[in-house]
């Protein structure tokens, strides 16, 4: 079994050291590149992608400590594993390197067996970190993944102004009953592909997928200039894409898909809920409940898109709406002003 080839950058101001380290790296089956000081190394790291950095400390122009500081401050390079190789003596320089984020410290002259073990361990850790990040990206949205990377994970939320959109498929339960589950999954996947397409181009973030339902946030976790307009545009686009898809379904003698969309705007509390072991990014608050109730009410009202007053007032004159008056929604004490957006 041979380990996969990795790309390593060797930084050392001394030519003999560079040659010997390159040789060691090559003999381990990896591809070395060299830089003669920290400044050159950073240029190379920003231009090309590397799996691991072997860093000397004592160098002219920019020393190893400065390189470590710069790497730590750069989000795109922060996770690059670094093994410091130096003949600097004294525990304090070792401690300083580790504190600055170096993965490991190898004294020079470097022992080839030890180097092999350290490189192997560092690359394996990097591989696991990469897998972990990939999982986070797949099961959280890019925005949440970014927020997690930037701010770290902490339970609790903060109050933000956002627009919340709920959407689901009408008659989904009976559709499930009348066709094989394989076909339902196929329909669902097509539906999600279309919905994500409509939402993604407007700046919305799909926060939850529950069965045939979607919860989409506009303005959280990252602020958005005009959430209400973006949400309504997304809803109109969703209906347009579904109408197109229904033409295909009609050609295949399949019943059309119908969706309902509810949108509300206001303050929400956004953040991570759950436990330290398992948590999810979500928004809670009246605005969220209202959007969900409006979506449910689309069935009763026989409308494709319903929005609340706050969303309607934020829309420009270019988007026509129809006032449905005050509606007594389930779970709401007072009547709520409801508007329909024609589709």
């Amino acid at each position: 079994m041979s380990a996969p080839t990795a790309r390593l950058l060797i930084v050392d101001d001394n030519k003999v050291n560079r040659l010997l380290m390159s040789r060691n790296v090559e003999m381990l089956g990896h591809r070395p590149a060299v830089a003669e000081n920290g400044r050159v190394a950073l240029e190379m790291l920003r231009r090309d992608s590397f799996d691991l950095l072997l860093l000397d400390i004592e160098m002219p122009e920019m020393d190893g400590f400065q390189v470590l500081e710069q790497l730590k401050a750069d989000p795109s390079l922060r996770d690059l594993p670094v093994i410091v190789t130096s003949s600097l003596e004294g525990m304090d320089s070792v401690v300083r390197c580790i504190e600055l984020g170096a993965e490991d410290y190898l004294p020079k002259p470097v022992n080839a067996v030890l180097l092999k073990a350290r490189i192997g361990a560092s690359l394996e850790k990097k591989r696991l970190r990469d897998i972990q990040r990939e999982i986070v990206r797949r099961f959280a949205t890019t925005e949440v993944a970014l927020d997690l990377e930037r701010s770290g994970f902490a339970l609790g939320g903060k109050r933000v102004h956002a627009t919340v959109l709920f959407s689901d498929i009408r008659g989904f339960t009976s559709m499930c009953e009348s066709q094989p589950p394989e076909e339902t999954i196929e329909v669902l996947n097509t539906y999600y592909a279309l919905m994500f397409d409509a939402i993604g181009s407007t700046g919305g973030v799909v926060n939850q997928i529950i069965g045939d339902g979607l919860m989409v946030l506009f303005g959280a976790p990252l602020p958005l200039a005009d959430g209400p307009s973006a949400a309504v545009s997304a809803a109109i686009e969703m209906h347009a894409l579904i109408a197109q898809y229904n033409l295909e379904r009609a050609a295949a003698q399949k019943a059309p898909l119908k969706i309902g969309v509810g949108i509300a705007t206001g303050d929400v509390v956004a953040g991570y809920t759950g436990t330290q072991q398992r948590a999810t990014y979500t928004c809670i608050g009246d605005t969220v409940n209202l959007a969900a109730r409006l979506e449910t009410y689309t069935k009763e009202a026989g409308r494709g898109i319903l929005i609340d007053g706050a969303t309607q007032r934020a829309l420009g004159a270019g988007t026509p709406t129809e006032a449905l008056g005050g509606v007594q929604l389930k779970g709401k004490a007072a009547a709520v002003e409801v508007f329909a957006v024609p589709v």
Binding site: D13, N14, V16, N17, L20, E58, S87, L88, K108, P109
Partner: peptide, 10 residues
Amino acid sequence: AHSLKANAQT
């Protein structure tokens, strides 16, 4: 001196 030391030790 540091460089010379490292090379000598190598």
